[in-house]
Structures are given as C-alpha cells and as structure tokens.
Design a binder for these strands. Structure first.
Lengths: 113, 113
DNA sequence: ACGCCGTGCATCACTATACGAGGTAGCATA
DNA sequence: TATGCTACCTCGTATAGTGATGCACGGCGT
C-alpha cells in the first residue's frame, strides 16, 4: 500500500481531518499521525497542508480549538468538532461517495444512464 | 448526482481519458462527451484541462493521434490507446483503487492494517 | 557541553492542475 | 445577419499539496 500521488489528495484533507476528529479531541500533530495510521501509511499529510487546513476549518466554525501546555514538550493546540463541523463532515462524506461512485462508473463503463 | 468540486478531480483526468479510450478511437470533443455521459453528468472536464491532458498523454506515448477532415464541420484529432497507454491505464486504475480504499479506511475508521 | 533527533506549531516558495474566458474556424438554422 | 453548435487551442487565475525553513522544548548519546 504505497504512498499516493499528491494530486489525488487534493480536496480530501478536510474530509480526513474531520473524520479522525470523530474520535474526540486531538492536537494537530496527533491528527496527522491518526491519518497516517488509519490509512495504513498511504496518507501522510505534510505540515504545509495540514496546518492551513486546520486554520481554515477553525475559521469556518467547523472546529473549536484551545491551547494547552504540554507537561513535556511544547504547547499543543487541541481541536474538537463543533456541531457545524459534524454537519460539514457529513457533507464531505456524501460528496466523496458521490465522487467515488462517479469515477467507478466512468472507469468501469457501466453507462451512467 | 450533482457536479463535483474541482479539487477532488485533480489527478483523475488521465484516468478518465484513458478509460473512455478503451472503447476505441475517439476525438477530443467526443472524449469529453463520453466522460460526461458515463459519469452521469458529474464530470464535465473543461477544455482547459482536457486538451492539455491529451497533449501530455500523447507526448508520453500513451496515446497516438491523427488529424482527419470532418465531412461536416472542422477537422478532428482522433486519439487511440497505445500499448504503453494501456499499461498506464492499468497503473492509474490500481492507484485509484488504492487511493479510494485508503480514504474509505481512514474515514470509516476500521484501523489501517 | 554539544549536537542531533523527535515533538509541535507555523509560514514560505514552488509546483501541478482544473477552470473559465478568449481566439480561430466551419457549418446549419433562424 | 447572427446565433449556436461543433472542434481545436492557449492563456491567466485560483486552489491546495510538498518540502524546506524557522522557532521552541526536551531527551539521549558521545
């Protein structure tokens, strides 16, 4: 299960981030780890895409965030899903399945009606 | 089955183009129509992305192309899959399923591995 | 003591690629 | 005449991922 070409990833970051946050409160670095684990190593979001995505989701009101001092190491910013974030997640999931279905139909060739 | 956000599309154009060309020889405009039909209207590749993609695939040797005069209307450029294009298609298909599977696992949360 | 590595957040330049608008052109129809 | 569909191409713009860099903390090896 190798790494995936970065172009395919475009647009999936919010979906992945919101998904792992269903587990509960997580901080940024941890979110990246979860995504890496859950995807079986296929996805390893770079910091340059993860942090901007988190900031955007927070600005949209999909995530709420608080700083906490780490007992060891530097401070962390913990993120949690808001209600509207849950709704956004559902939207992204629906959009994703519609997309994946359309690709399957187009590639498979079973005439989309 | 509404239209899909353009970011998700990134990187899928070669896969879609190569896929519809399995049917046989097609010209550019027709390729776009096939993709639109097969996807059930979800995908409607713009000319600004389709033609550059065709040129790139041709330059790579995945497609061979010839001009033909249309009996009616302007001339058309017909594309057909080469052997290496068939191999490239298989590659893109494999990469796509790996990608889709990874998304499903990450979103679904059934622990990767 | 010093450098290196892992954690943790952030930003930057670079890059790939989709979109829409614009251009050229032929033919058909109103 | 002009509008619209076919058919090709190219350009400017926007989006968003990557890797590099920077700051900062703490632990480990030499």
């Amino acid at each position: 299960m190798g790494r995936i070409g970065s172009q395919l990833l475009k647009g999936t970051t919010p979906l992945l981030v919101l998904s792992v946050l269903r587990d509960g409160e997580l901080y940024g670095y941890e979110i990246a780890q979860r995504i890496r684990e859950r995807s079986g190593g296929s996805f390893a979001p770079s910091e340059g895409s993860l942090y901007p995505a988190l900031h955007a989701l927070e600005a949209e009101g999909a995530l709420s965030a608080t700083w906490r001092e780490g007992d060891k190491g530097p401070r962390r910013r913990y993120y949690r899903l808001t209600n509207s974030g849950g709704a956004l997640l559902a939207e992204h999931e629906a959009q994703w399945s519609s997309f994946a279905l359309s690709v399957a139909r187009t590639v498979g060739g079973e005439a989309g009606r």
